[in-house]
Amino acid sequence: TLFEALYDYEARTEDDLSFHKGEKFQILNSSEGDWWEARSLTTGETGYIPSIYLAPV
Rank of each mutant, 00 (worst) to 15 (best):
T1Y: 12
T1N: 14
T1I: 14
T1Q: 13
T1L: 14
T1M: 14
T1V: 13
L2D: 04
L2S: 05
L2T: 08
F3R: 03
F3N: 01
F3I: 02
F3E: 00
E4R: 06
E4H: 08
E4K: 06
E4I: 14
E4L: 11
E4D: 02
E4F: 15
A5E: 00
A5T: 03
A5P: 00
A5H: 01
A5C: 02
A5V: 01
A5W: 01
A5K: 00
L6W: 05
L6S: 04
L6H: 04
Y7S: 09
Y7T: 10
Y7I: 13
Y7M: 13
Y7R: 10
Y7H: 11
Y7W: 13
Y7C: 10
D8T: 06
D8E: 07
D8V: 02
D8M: 04
D8C: 05
D8L: 02
D8N: 09
D8G: 07
D8A: 08
D8W: 05
Y9M: 04
Y9N: 02
Y9G: 04
Y9T: 01
Y9W: 09
Y9C: 04
Y9P: 00
E10F: 10
E10L: 10
E10V: 12
E10I: 14
A11Q: 07
A11G: 11
A11K: 10
A11W: 03
A11N: 06
A11P: 05
A11H: 06
A11T: 06
A11C: 05
A11L: 02
R12W: 08
R12H: 10
R12N: 10
R12Q: 15
R12L: 12
R12Y: 08
T13V: 08
T13N: 13
T13Y: 15
T13A: 12
T13W: 13
T13I: 07
T13D: 12
E14S: 12
E14Y: 10
E14D: 14
E14L: 11
D15G: 15
D15E: 12
D15I: 13
D15C: 11
D15R: 15
D15Q: 14
D16V: 15
D16N: 13
D16T: 14
D16W: 08
D16Y: 13
D16S: 15
D16I: 14
D16L: 11
D16A: 15
L17S: 02
L17Q: 03
L17C: 03
L17E: 00
L17W: 06
L17F: 14
L17M: 15
L17N: 01
S18T: 09
S18I: 02
S18P: 06
S18K: 04
S18M: 04
S18Q: 04
F19H: 01
F19P: 00
F19R: 00
F19Q: 00
F19L: 07
F19V: 06
F19C: 06
F19E: 00
H20S: 14
H20L: 13
H20E: 10
K21W: 04
K21H: 05
K21F: 04
K21A: 12
K21N: 04
G22I: 01
G22Y: 06
G22A: 04
G22D: 03
E23V: 02
E23G: 02
E23R: 00
E23P: 00
E23H: 06
E23T: 07
E23L: 01
E23K: 00
E23F: 03
E23I: 01
K24F: 10
K24A: 05
K24Q: 13
K24I: 15
K24V: 14
K24E: 05
K24P: 03
K24G: 02
F25T: 00
F25Q: 00
F25R: 00
Q26C: 10
Q26E: 14
Q26T: 11
Q26S: 08
Q26Y: 15
Q26P: 00
Q26R: 08
Q26L: 14
Q26A: 09
Q26N: 07
I27A: 02
I27G: 01
I27K: 03
I27V: 11
I27R: 03
I27E: 00
I27Y: 02
I27C: 03
L28W: 05
L28H: 04
L28K: 05
L28Y: 06
L28V: 08
L28I: 12
N29Q: 08
N29D: 14
N29C: 08
N29F: 07
N29H: 08
S30Y: 12
S30K: 14
S30D: 13
S30A: 12
S31I: 10
S31N: 11
S31P: 10
S31T: 13
S31A: 11
S31M: 13
S31Y: 10
E32V: 11
E32S: 14
G33H: 13
G33N: 13
G33C: 09
G33A: 14
D34L: 11
D34Q: 09
D34C: 10
D34A: 10
W35M: 12
W35G: 03
W35Q: 07
W35D: 05
W35I: 10
W35L: 09
W35A: 06
W36L: 06
W36Q: 02
W36V: 07
W36T: 02
W36K: 02
W36H: 01
W36A: 02
W36R: 01
E37T: 10
E37L: 15
E37S: 07
E37P: 04
E37I: 14
E37H: 13
A38D: 01
A38K: 00
R39K: 15
R39M: 14
R39S: 07
R39F: 10
R39I: 14
R39Y: 12
R39H: 08
R39P: 01
R39L: 12
S40L: 06
S40V: 05
S40H: 07
S40W: 01
S40I: 05
S40K: 12
S40D: 03
L41Q: 08
L41A: 05
L41V: 09
L41W: 06
L41S: 04
L41M: 11
L41H: 06
L41D: 04
L41T: 08
L41P: 03
L41E: 09
T42Q: 10
T42G: 07
T42L: 14
T42W: 12
T42S: 12
T42C: 08
T42R: 12
T42H: 09
T43K: 03
T43M: 01
T43H: 04
T43N: 06
T43D: 03
G44Q: 07
G44Y: 06
G44V: 01
G44M: 07
G44T: 03
G44F: 06
G44A: 05
G44I: 01
G44K: 05
E45V: 11
E45S: 10
E45I: 10
E45W: 08
E45K: 14
T46I: 15
T46M: 09
T46A: 08
T46P: 01
G47I: 05
G47L: 05
G47P: 00
G47M: 06
G47T: 03
G47N: 03
Y48T: 07
Y48M: 13
Y48N: 07
Y48E: 03
I49E: 00
I49D: 00
I49N: 00
I49Q: 00
I49R: 00
P50M: 13
P50E: 07
P50V: 05
P50L: 15
P50Y: 14
P50I: 06
P50T: 04
S51Q: 08
S51N: 07
S51G: 07
S51Y: 10
S51E: 04
S51K: 14
S51A: 15
I52K: 15
I52A: 15
I52Q: 13
I52C: 11
I52R: 14
I52E: 11
I52N: 13
Y53F: 11
Y53L: 13
Y53S: 08
Y53P: 01
Y53M: 13
Y53V: 06
L54E: 00
L54K: 01
L54S: 01
L54T: 02
L54R: 00
L54I: 09
A55F: 10
A55L: 08
A55P: 01
A55H: 10
A55D: 04
A55M: 12
A55K: 14
A55C: 07
A55S: 11
P56I: 09
P56A: 10
P56K: 07
P56T: 06
P56W: 05
P56E: 09
V57E: 06
V57I: 11
V57G: 04
V57W: 10
V57L: 11
V57M: 09
V57T: 08
V57P: 04
